[in-house]
Design a protein around this nucleic acid. Structure first.
Lengths: 228, 228
DNA sequence: ACAGGCACTGAACGATCGTTCAGGCTGCTG
DNA sequence: CAGCAGCCTGAACGATCGTTCAGTGCCTGT
């Protein structure tokens, strides 16, 4: 609905595309920031309201309820991720499912919001993850054709696992900061202590060939045993 | 009402090692289950109390405050993980940092509690993660010597990344269930749709050799550029 | 000028939160 | 027996929660 308050210029113009100042957008952005910091249940409507410099009643006026606000945040973040995704596709670096929107500095902390809400079950975020995986399947099929990626028997499984790992590291960015002194929700340029070992694993693998064959054999044995 | 007040032994004997029935332990286990389900902030003291069949006041009597209860839960889960870890070390399968305690069925859902509290910052859980990483460094050094793992220039970085990925997938177990129809916090025997692609990545890698060299070169270029 | 719609607020509602308090019950000790 | 120490409870506290509502001021259409 977006509202778009009557005119197009005088008081507040959302017409500037990205950086609008309408109260509704201000509340939504403040909510994204608050939810990213303390989680949805850990944030009160009053906190969001005061962060957006409005009254709590106005939050209800625009979004109906706290759940409505949360849903609006989910949808906004999801569409922002989708936009960034198509940008990334154009740039050709589609490997990283969220790399494109790695903090554009301006605007609300989308990545930190994602990292928080990935764990407390939102349907919008869930279908966003599903999209990420099926997109990754496509990108990685391209990657196999262009010689970037090795072929695999289970393309969807591999895409799902890699997406889970990437998003999981994002969710645990607090621990990543403590362990490796990197900021996974911030500038990727600075995250080499994470990216380099990750790249090595994705490139060379971590397990030796003979051990891999042995473990795989053991797995398949238990699999057949379970079927019997 | 379970209660078991006076008989069976003096008042309360946690001396039975694992399966004690003292009210304090019952409250703690109920809290772990509730926190695992709805998160710490999403769970009220009354909910925990009614789950443990006691009054809310008794919770305060035993733990002082909700924060005290949460700390007791953290410590209990941490020590349980440490116990399971030494067991796993004896069995020799130390690769998986949490594989040992993968739901012993009996007792509180430790893994689900871990998956929840990993994201909302507890010092006990944080130092538990630190321990996991330094343990992984040791285990993986052994693995390199025994020919299980490939050597690496950055053993700690690799251990940290693998730990982050494993724990991250655990945290996102809800998405893993939806995507791959596996239960990462449950029986590992059934989680093959996750383990097989993961094993393939860790064994063969996902990126081709020439692409790996190219990307690595690009990374190091940006690194040097950043230094200049 | 007037009516109507819209963004917006201050104050308050009931519910629920974490926490406190006075006291009851039970079993051990002297 | 009395006294005491413990586990444990029901009732209540003030704070804060999400939400409601009546009303104010600005803007627009006629």
């Amino acid at each position: 609905m977006r509202s778009v308050p009557a005119d197009a210029a005088p008081p507040d113009t959302p017409s500037s595309g990205d950086a609008d100042l309408t109260a509704r957008a201000r509340i939504r952005d403040a909510a994204i920031a608050c939810f990213a910091d303390a989680g949805v249940v850990g944030t009160s409507v009053r906190t969001v309201a005061s962060a957006a410099d409005v009254s709590p009643a106005l939050v209800m006026h625009h979004f109906g309820s706290k759940d409505g606000l949360r849903g609006a945040c989910d949808q906004h973040v999801a569409s922002a991720v989708r936009e960034g995704k198509t940008d990334a596709m154009r740039q050709g670096l589609a490997m990283d499912p969220v790399g494109a929107l790695r903090q554009q500095a301006e605007g609300p902390p989308l990545l930190r919001y994602l990292a928080r809400t990935l764990v407390d079950g939102s349907e919008h975020v869930a279908e966003l993850v599903d999209e990420m995986v099926s997109d990754a399947v496509g990108y990685m099929a391209e990657g196999v054709e262009t010689g970037l990626l090795r072929p695999t028997d289970d393309p969807r499984g591999r895409a799902a696992v890699l997406t889970l790992w990437t998003l999981g590291a994002l969710v645990l960015h607090e621990h990543a900061t403590r362990l490796l002194d990197v900021d996974l929700v911030g500038d990727p340029q600075q995250a080499l202590p994470y990216f380099l070992p990750a790249l090595e694993i994705l490139g060379r693998g971590a397990i030796t060939d003979q051990a891999y064959e042995r473990i795989r054999g053991a797995f398949e044995a238990t699999d057949e045993e379970a079927e019997r």
